[in-house]
Design a protein around this nucleic acid. Structure first.
Length: 932
DNA sequence: ACGCTCACG
DNA sequence: GACGTACGTGAGCGTA
């Protein structure tokens, strides 16, 4: 102990984590105005610190002070007892990005800020208290946490920060029935459900205190447990002696926690006005900034949004060396790796499987990486090279059994203190979920790249490795081949598979280290944390649930379609005067335009005739029969090949349901995309197509419920472009297209001509897409000049839209990106091009913030949905951009609709306060057609 | 592998 | 004055 601390000194220890949670729950969910970053907890935290700093304490003022935080990683207690704090819920999504900011705040107040990896704040507080007390000083712990009460006495006191009331020995006795030196014994017996400390079953604080008082201390009690009179209680203590001792080690605070600083370094310092004000204004806390400025006699800086900061320099990494990877074939090595991961607190993981369909593929191996270059491969499902004559293949010797490996990894993969890093983790999450492992918490490099680079490039691992690590991964084709000769990964020899597989984990870890520091610099942390990362388990659950289809109905429809097509083919060949391949646009074009001499233009690039639907429709309108028949044939052909033929092949034999897969980082705008099969483009617009939806059915005793946002993109436009007429119409629930027509053409909404309304509707949609007279004229089949007149009128009536478009384009040109209301960034690399390509880039830039905000809103709803409906016999099955489909037990339909509607209509809150209401329509039925 | 066409929001 | 165009997706088919 140095001489700077001793008698007469007074150390204040502030429980930072308790401050954060109290601030978070006490305040409404505030966000920073410039970018929507949640800062409510930071604001409360700062107010509490300011109050603390300015409190008049007279002679009792501290000479030394520190704020102590929990470090978000596993602690030594998890080694004693893996389930310690395991039932702690994840912190709320809008709180997570605020943790680092509270550290910044503490430093800005010029108060020492302390956290140590592997230790809880309580241990650091204990060690500091012991040291200060032993040096002869006084200690005040500013917290009301009962776990700290064991420290009270001998010059250490606690202070409840809310009530401002001291907690002394007598208060502790009142709470625990014993004095501080026996509090640990009582806690060990009583356990603590919030921290998952087991204790002795059936024994609470009262009984525990009584036993400890009677026997003196815990060890005496356990040694003489047979003397306890009550038989049940006696047996409990004898049976659970070990569990009680473990509980004691969990609740006992460690006075010997290593401290990498001295007490002297905690000396109270006056706040540095400039630094503190800079922080508060960066957070955009106007009131507090002004208050602090007044008190410190400084000038308050203007509160403006933070300037972009410099990206941190990338550290030099050892190059990728595949010969360093380890192949794990024995238990000792596996245990060594598990320990290594526990020591590190995070691991990159990748699973290797026999196929791309994670609902059916089998596990072949697991790869792990803990540091760049330090990766391993655990083979579990490799089989002998070629199949034998009977198509059988034998497992390769020397692999650990799959069940053993998964049993060993499960506690690690489910440990809330260990971060699992992956590339497209949804795949691995589902793979492991099929073996009963629910991996959490997750970090996904694909999604980090998406938050940073959407619009710039795709986010597959090979591409990311090449761009950001300068490394070319082994192509999978080198191992499994292509085409007919392709084998599955399980048939690849282990010595060839291991370097490939381990490399994936190594690359993933390196990508994580590359992307993680960039998220705050590029100001996409909030998007990543609130709309990307948490959606992974939600989508995984939806995909695994799947949806039931009636394959028999679809097969019957296919048969009917086949008959109809045969009939149409006869008519088409008769009209054409020859047989040809109807599905070939080339042959069809030649027949229509060369042979039969119909008028139609050639298209650009290939110089081929266009035979698209609108061309054929024009020809049909001129009275030609053949194009009309072709259109009929095409429609039926499409329905048959893409839907009624294909969907039954996607029924999973194990579940009897169809499981789509959502790509999270596929679309540029934040939308999801559905593949294998695509369930986001099931027909609905035509009567015949809609019948396909009748084959999507609810399970026995259930209903399908569909909820969809009404006009969400137009509502977002009304809000972001700040168009009073539009906003008012939405608030009053007026038919928005009729209102537009009324404003444009000066006719009343009542008794509106449907044709006029249709035109207004087309213009409303056109605006969202980046309108052009050409596009509108084609859509409405009116002359281009007339379309241009409509557009001019529209912009005159709603001048705010033009202003919004100009603003958006200026931003895109200046930043190379646009942002949604929620901070999602969509890069617009083509925006400064010249020539024809520029038009497309401009329209995409105008559309992206609108489509993207709608995507953000439904993502937010989906992320909140599982918890909101957990108590109902209901599951979320599908997302179709502005629609969510649920499967609900019949008796819970009304409850589900009420709750899901609330979640969806409130999904923008609290990040964005929309100036228009969100409205959700709902329906239900035995099948999707009825529900819609 | 690529373009055309068409299903959806 | 002429380019070319409505925004965002995925799947099946024919053709190279």
């Amino acid at each position: 102990m140095g001489e700077g601390f001793g008698k007469g000194c007074h150390l204040h220890l502030i429980d930072g984590s308790a401050f954060i949670f109290r601030a978070y729950h006490a305040l409404p969910p505030l966000t920073r105005k410039s970018d929507g970053l949640p800062v409510g907890a930071v604001a409360g935290f700062c107010n509490m610190l300011w109050k603390y700093v300015t409190d008049e304490r007279g002679h009792d003022a501290p000479t030394h002070a520190a704020v102590i935080f929990d470090h978000s990683s596993k602690t030594f207690r998890n080694e004693i007892y893996t389930a310690y704090k395991a039932n702690r819920p994840e912190p709320p999504e809008d709180l997570r990005p605020q943790f680092p900011l509270t550290r910044d705040a503490t430093r800005a107040f010029n108060i020492a800020c302390i956290e140590t990896q592997g230790y809880e704040a309580d241990d650091i507080i204990a060690a500091l208290s012991c040291k200060a007390r032993d040096a002869g000083g006084a200690v005040t712990i500013i917290s009301s946490d009962k776990d700290l009460m064991q420290l009270v006495g001998d010059g250490v006191q606690m202070l409840d920060p809310i009530k401002g009331k001291p907690i002394d020995r007598d208060e502790v006795f009142e709470k625990f029935g014993v004095y501080p030196d026996r509090v640990v014994d009582v806690q060990a017996l009583a356990g603590d459900p919030t921290d998952n400390v087991p204790g002795a079953p059936g024994i609470g604080i009262k009984t525990a205190a009584q036993l400890i008082t009677e026997f003196g201390d815990l060890e005496s009690l356990l040694a003489r447990a047979d003397e306890i009179k009550q038989p049940k209680r006696r047996q409990t203590l004898i049976d659970h002696a070990d569990q009680i001792r473990i509980s004691k080690r969990l609740v006992e605070l460690d006075c010997n926690t290593p401290l990498d600083f001295t007490l002297e370094s905690l000396e109270v310092r006056a706040p540095d006005a400039a630094r503190l004000l800079a922080f508060l204004s960066e957070m955009e806390f106007r009131t507090l900034t002004a208050r602090v400025a007044e008190k410190l006699g400084a000038e308050a800086p203007a509160v403006v949004s933070a300037p972009p900061r410099e990206a941190p320099a990338a550290p030099d990494l050892p190059p990728i060396d595949r010969s360093l990877y380890e192949t794990i074939t024995d238990r000792e090595a596996l245990d060594r790796w598990i320990q290594l991961i526990r020591d590190t607190g995070q691991v990159a993981i990748d699973t290797e499987t026999t196929g791309l369909d994670e609902m059916q593929a089998d596990l072949v191996g697991v790869c792990l990486a803990v540091a760049p270059g330090k990766a391993c491969y655990i083979p579990v499902g490799h089989v002998a090279g070629g199949d034998d004559l009977f198509g059988q293949s034998a497992p390769v010797a020397g692999q650990l059994p799959l069940a053993d490996v998964l049993a060993a990894l499960k506690p690690l993969l489910e440990d809330p203190a260990i971060l699992k890093i992956g590339q497209n983790l949804k795949y691995d999450w589902k793979m492991l979920a099929r073996h009963g492992i629910r991996m959490a918490p997750l970090a996904d490099t694909m999604l980090m790249s998406y938050a940073l680079n959407a619009g710039t490039h795709n986010h597959g691992m090979d591409e990311l490795a090449e761009r950001y690590l300068g490394h070319k991964c082994i192509p999978i084709k080198d191992l499994i081949g292509t085409g007919k000769a392709q084998i599955n990964f399980g048939q690849v020899p282990i010595d060839k598979a291991a370097p490939y597989a381990a490399e994936d984990a190594d690359v993933t870890l390196r990508l994580f280290q590359h992307f993680a520091p960039l998220l705050p610099v590029e100001r996409v942390t909030t998007v990543y944390e609130t709309t990307e990362r948490p959606i992974v388990p939600v989508l995984a659950a939806m995909e695994m649930a799947g949806i039931r289809i009636d394959a028999e109905v679809l097969r019957r429809m296919s048969g009917a379609f086949a008959q109809k097509m045969a009939q149409l083919e006869d008519e088409i060949f008769a009209l054409a005067g020859q047989r040809f391949t109807i599905g070939s646009p080339k042959q069809l074009g030649e027949i229509l335009f060369d042979k039969m001499g119909m008028t139609g233009g050639k298209t650009g690039k290939t110089g081929a005739f266009s035979t698209s639907a609108d061309v054929l429709e024009d020809l049909a309108a001129e009275g030609h029969d053949l194009p009309a028949r072709i259109l009929d044939w095409r429609q039926i052909s499409k329905l048959k090949s893409t839907y009624t033929d294909a969907l039954p092949t996607f029924v999973n034999p194990d579940t009897g349901r169809v499981h789509t897969s959502y790509s999270i980082a596929g679309a540029q705008t934040g939308r999801l995309a559905s593949t294998d099969p695509n369930l986001q483009n099931i027909p609905v617009r035509t009567e015949e197509g809609r019948r396909i939806r009748e084959a999507f059915i609810a399970a026995e005793g259930h209903r399908l419920v569909s909820l969809d946002y009404s006009q969400i993109e137009l509502r977002i436009l009304a809000h972001v472009a700040d168009i009073p007429a539009l906003k008012q119409a939405f608030r009053e629930g007026i038919d928005i297209h009729a209102m537009t027509a009324s404003q444009m053409f000066g006719v009343p909404v009542e008794g509106m001509d449907p044709m006029i309304r249709r035109r207004a509707k087309a213009i409303n949609f056109g605006v969202i897409y980046g309108i052009s007279s050409f596009g509108l004229s084609r859509n409405l089949r009116i002359p281009r000049a007339e379309a241009q007149d409509f557009i001019d009128t529209y912009f005159r009536r709603f001048p705010e839209i033009r202003a919004y478009m100009d603003r958006t384009l200026a931003d895109a040109k200046a930043d190379g990106s646009v942002r949604t209301l929620f901070g999602r960034r969509i890069n617009t690399p083509g925006i400064n091009q010249s020539g024809p390509a520029a038009g497309g880039a401009r329209r995409a830039a105008i559309n992206a913030p609108i489509q993207g905000a709608a995507a953000d809103i439904i993502r937010r709803a989906m992320i909140r949905m599982p918890a909101a409906i957990a108590h109902l016999p209901a599951r979320m099955l599908l997302q179709v951009h502005d629609e969510l489909v649920f499967e609900v037990r019949e008796d819970a339909v009304d409850d589900l609709i009420a709750i899901a509607r609330d979640v969806m209509e409130g999904a923008a809150d609290p990040a964005v306060k929309l100036s228009v209401p969100l409205v959700v329509d709902a329906g239900h039925g035995a099948n999707w057609a009825e529900a819609h």
